[in-house]
Design a binder for these strands. Sequence first.
DNA 1: TTGAAAGCGCTAACAG
DNA 2: CTGTTAGCGCTTTCAA
Lengths: 336, 336
Amino acid sequence: MPPSIKQVALQAGVSTATVSRLLNSPASVSAETAGKINEAIAALGFRPNFNGRNLRAGRSRTVGVVVPTLSNTVFAQCLQGIELAARTLDYSVMFTATEYRQEDEAAAVNLLLSHRVDGVILTVADASASGTLDVLDREGIPYVLTYNQPQQASRLSVSVDNRAAAHDAVAHLTALGHTRIQMLTGQFNASDRAIQRYHGYLDAMRAHGLAPMAPIEVPRHTGLTSAHLQAFSDPQQRPSALFCSNDLLALAAMRDLRELGLRVPEDISVMGFDGIPLGEMMSPVLASAVQPSEQIGEVALRTLVAAIGQTEGGAGPVSQTLAHTIRHGGTVRVFS
Amino acid sequence: MPPSIKQVALQAGVSTATVSRLLNSPASVSAETAGKINEAIAALGFRPNFNGRNLRAGRSRTVGVVVPTLSNTVFAQCLQGIELAARTLDYSVMFTATEYRQEDEAAAVNLLLSHRVDGVILTVADASASGTLDVLDREGIPYVLTYNQPQQASRLSVSVDNRAAAHDAVAHLTALGHTRIQMLTGQFNASDRAIQRYHGYLDAMRAHGLAPMAPIEVPRHTGLTSAHLQAFSDPQQRPSALFCSNDLLALAAMRDLRELGLRVPEDISVMGFDGIPLGEMMSPVLASAVQPSEQIGEVALRTLVAAIGQTEGGAGPVSQTLAHTIRHGGTVRVFS
DNA sequence: TTGAAAGCGCTAACAG
DNA sequence: CTGTTAGCGCTTTCAA
């Protein structure tokens, strides 16, 4: 068992209260006693036990993070941003993944709450139908959504404007002369973002007087999009451009198209969403609607910490929309 | 303040001890009282406070994880594997990154230890010269190294055989007829793996009677490898194949080579190390020495939990070497 | 500036 | 099967 504040006090010849004071507000301890205590701390290799502290103080300076998966770079980057910002602000991070299983969200949050995290950052399948968020609301635990753009204006969130970003991506395609643009998307029910992006697609198509095509919804980015793309072998059956709801999907699609003997972008153009860093290193570069994932994480953490600060709901923007950009890339060709 | 075991006890008309019992060994409580308590728990929305529990029990069922960065998919995958396995075993995960700053390793571990994690999984810059590991040893906190292959046989670790994997990668190149093979590597002092891989390179070159070339050491995978590759414009000055110490570096190199007007693999072949999933989706496929990152994480966690189980050092393999594979890919051409 | 004392939520003897 | 009790490490009044 590691040394406790008690042993330090004994060794330094002071009371535990004084040791505690040195730890928490060093100014309130005389230089002399401080010296003795510090010696004792060093000698014993004392390290404060946060469990004791948290128990007593009722806060833990720890935040919980729930993401769908770390296999998608986007969330890894976001977590990276969260952790970095957390370290700056002296917060610790407990982390959980749900593997896109909506039913695991509640369990994840419950676990975090048992650890008495001061707040939670999460990306849920569907922000407008999430019992998990209701729990958080009820218990009065501050939380910040990432990537989700909730309808309820009351919920703190950090994301890009998914609909607008998708619109801009599709507009980029139309600007290059594409008219037959189809959307390839992950399961709508696993991601409210996918739905918003689909709306953005519709917006853009309508705005340009183009006929929207039925979206192709694939199960998982396991990469098995082939079955859905078979029809593309027939030039009549395929769009000139494929807009994918995320970059991983775009990459999988490109691979499968290649297998079908189709060339990107000669036979079909592909555009993604997310702007994962690797897309920019490939050749051709993957065109994409870029969201600043690491920054999303960083802002989310700062927002959360601010919310933790003020017990009662207060100032500060609620729904934060970060700027997206459109990355031009060789996977999209000029069509005329 | 959320309800405590005390309020549950009051509401159910039993003692706190009984509530605790229901929580920890339900079998030891009569069905009748169990019913009453469960009702009270539900009514109050009670959730056990792990801080109290941990304080009392002296263990937290929480593990700490320290990785260099999450920007490298490899570590994200590993963390993913850790988290998944942890959830299975009812453990929670606290996570920290060091951004490859060796001096941050100690701080990270100290923080985790203050949280009284039961054990730590980490990837350090240099396992054989890490004060951090010494601290862990001294305090008797179980830990498992990932990716690092420590010299000290006493330290638990999970990795591939870096040297052998690098050897196999280079042997693959020689088998394809390459003789002028050069290594491009990250900073040796930021990664002991890089050194081991370099040794593997040397092994393979010597084994095939080839003259090793001086390794090119680049600062960071910021992607700025260009400066180091300038000389390659001259066909006399460039190797026929470039073996990179990791896939990110390989990708950056390929991009920079392209910028120099060189074609991969026609003008120069490129091989990586790690086997990141995206390498397989690209065209051409990135040839690489593949390590099972998610599995490394999973095995590390199981190993750690086992170590936590037995207070005193015990059975079980210490240095676990998982199998690597060589991924053939279009970034390497047959040279003859 | 310091100490004494109470208590955060929980578990683990020990009785009964 | 259940209750009583003590105490894990720490902070925080309240006094001195």
